[in-house]
Design a binder for these strands. Structure first.
Lengths: 101, 101
DNA sequence: CGTGTAAGGAATTCTGACACG
DNA sequence: CGTGTAAGGAATTCTGACACG
């Protein structure tokens, strides 16, 4: 199971088609730290399917009038929560298997 | 579960990096019917992760000296076998659920 | 048959800036 | 703050062809 979803291989032109956003917006959201495309040696941006999903969520939030700063805060928060959840789960699994030893 | 693997969004330059093949070879294998990238309105080729896997298999076969015609025959055959298998499975499932009715 | 290469054109992508608000 | 646009350069991609074998 290779993580195709996270592989950064899509150029910005294709992203505009997939998301309906302009290049300008996409680059601006990067500037604000909402997404982090990879750069080729030459400097062209490469996005993953995951980035595209994020961009579509951003587009929805922006339509609701949410500012990029707010969107970023929410996204960072979600990641934090996910990490806490994963840490807890890991801890429980470890405790479980340690007890069984 | 979106089929990222089949979505044709990768341009040929990225494919050369991912597969190690030259553009010439990639286009030639298309000419021989081994792969079928999508074309944008403007005419640039777009490949899927699935296409990339196919290309890597082709590269291996070519190194073994297998001709493209032979490779195509094998690939077509594999697809045929997969279809037969799927048809059989579908038939069994249908029979199963019909009997239960 | 399979692949390299030079050729010329057309579209892509990038950055920094000015604009409006 | 968020986005549009014109500007100029650099790299990408395409096709058809000649080459070698």
């Amino acid at each position: 199971m290779i993580p195709y979803k996270e592989k950064k291989v899509i150029s910005i032109g294709t992203v505009t088609e997939l998301t309906g956003l302009t290049e300008r917006k996409i680059r601006y959201y990067e500037e604000r730290g909402l997404i982090s495309p990879k750069r080729t040696e030459r400097g062209t941006r490469k996005y993953s399917f995951s980035d595209i999903e994020t961009l579509m969520n951003i587009a929805d939030k922006r339509e609701e009038g949410v500012q990029t700063k707010e969107i970023k805060k929410d996204m960072d928060n979600e990641k934090k929560m996910a990490n806490i959840r994963d840490d807890l789960l890991r801890g429980q699994l470890n405790a479980h298997f340690n007890l069984r030893r």
